[in-house]
């Protein structure tokens, strides 16, 4: 009697494993794994069915788009270690560069493979304040008041947080004519006003909305508007400061993970679809800024005018940014030192 029981276990496990492996495969002819950043879930939940339908019409094949969401750097690390992602849709250029530099998984000139430096959409940082904007927050310089408490994710662990840091730095630097000491003083106060440093963008959102902590949440414009949509327009206001940073959302296909020409064609078609008018409209509906002229005109009232500085213009290059600001012992560490 006893001898049958381990066998039965093994059989059960095997059946379960097969059932499990089969569940995804039987559903579609082809699958595509998109490794994306943390706060893009709703966006791709809207975009993917459109592409699946388009591909079905054009090629008579069913495609299943699998999604994996985590911080951009976490995703890049996973892909370097073997996560079999076919395409990446990140929120930071450095995290794609890593795939070329450390893993040789994509060519160094990946940015030239698709339009707009391989960035089908862009965004900027916005302030989400509580109803009526009691602290009258309008620009970056309003954030360092002694009674203002801030929430944004940790720049050490989140691309979202890094953009906030860079935007604050760039705007202040422009404001005080490049006096770096003044910028550092400002940054030190800004970082001191942070009440909770979550590890990712959505963690910060939860802290601000669900826990009711902080006066201002700094996050992507798209995320800030998404929160307002989700939790009610009466409770929060979205403020886009007059000077801000251009946040690019680079995409590329991962050459080394694509085994056949057919897979490569599918991956490429998926990314090119993101530049098409219907996709750009969906992006704009999700409060991302796009380059398609018709669409941007149509949605112009959603996006306040702001002077968007580019990372490459202000800081040289992303490599330089990572080295001087975010590496161990870099400017961020110095600013947070006691």
């Amino acid at each position: 009697m006893l001898t049958t029981s381990p066998l039965r276990h093994a059989a059960l496990a095997a059946t379960l494993g097969l059932a499990f492996a089969g569940s995804a495969a039987q559903a579609a002819d082809r699958t595509l794994l998109n490794a994306s950043y943390d706060v893009s879930r709703e966006l791709f939940a809207d975009l993917n069915p459109q592409f699946v339908e388009q591909w079905q019409n054009d090629h008579d094949e069913t495609v299943e788009i699998q999604m994996s969401h985590a911080g951009s750097s976490t995703q890049a690390r996973a892909i370097l270690q073997g996560l079999d992602a076919d395409v990446v849709t990140f929120n930071q250029v450095t995290d794609v560069n890593v795939l070329a530099e450390q893993g040789g998984l994509i060519p160094e000139d990946w940015q030239s493979r698709l339009p707009n430096q391989s960035s089908p959409w862009y965004s900027t940082m916005a302030f989400l304040v509580r109803e009526g904007n009691p602290h009258n927050i309008q620009s970056w310089s309003d954030l360092v008041g002694s009674d203002v408490s801030l929430i944004f994710p940790n720049p050490k662990t989140s691309g979202n947080g890094r953009y906030t840091y860079l935007a604050a730095w760039a705007a202040t630097q422009q404001n005080n004519d490049g006096d770096e000491q003044a910028t550092r003083d400002y940054m030190r106060q800004l970082l001191r006003n942070v009440e909770v440093f979550d590890t990712g963008g959505r963690g910060a959102t939860n802290t601000f909305v669900e826990r009711g902590i902080g006066d201002v949440l700094i996050t992507f414009e798209s995320e800030a508007n998404g929160i307002v949509q989700q939790y009610g327009e009466d409770d929060y206001d979205v403020i886009v400061p007059p000077v801000d940073i251009m946040a690019e959302f680079p995409v590329t296909w991962v050459d080394e993970n694509l085994d056949s020409d057919a897979d490569r064609a599918l991956a490429k078609a998926y990314l090119e679809f993101l530049y098409s008018e219907p996709a750009q409209r969906t992006l704009a509906e999700n409060y991302y800024r796009v380059n398609d002229e018709n669409v941007s005109e149509e949605f112009a009232d959603r996006f306040p005018q702001t002077d968007m500085l580019r990372v490459n213009d202000v800081f040289g290059s992303w490599d330089n940014v990572m080295q001087t600001h975010f590496a161990s012992g870099g400017t961020l560490d110095q600013l947070q030192r006691r």
Binding site: Q66, M67, R202
Partner: peptide, 18 residues
Amino acid sequence: TIRGETVTLPLQVELLYQ
């Protein structure tokens, strides 16, 4: 964290929470 493939119940809790 591939949805539907490599997400266990505790991971699903965190994903939904976010």
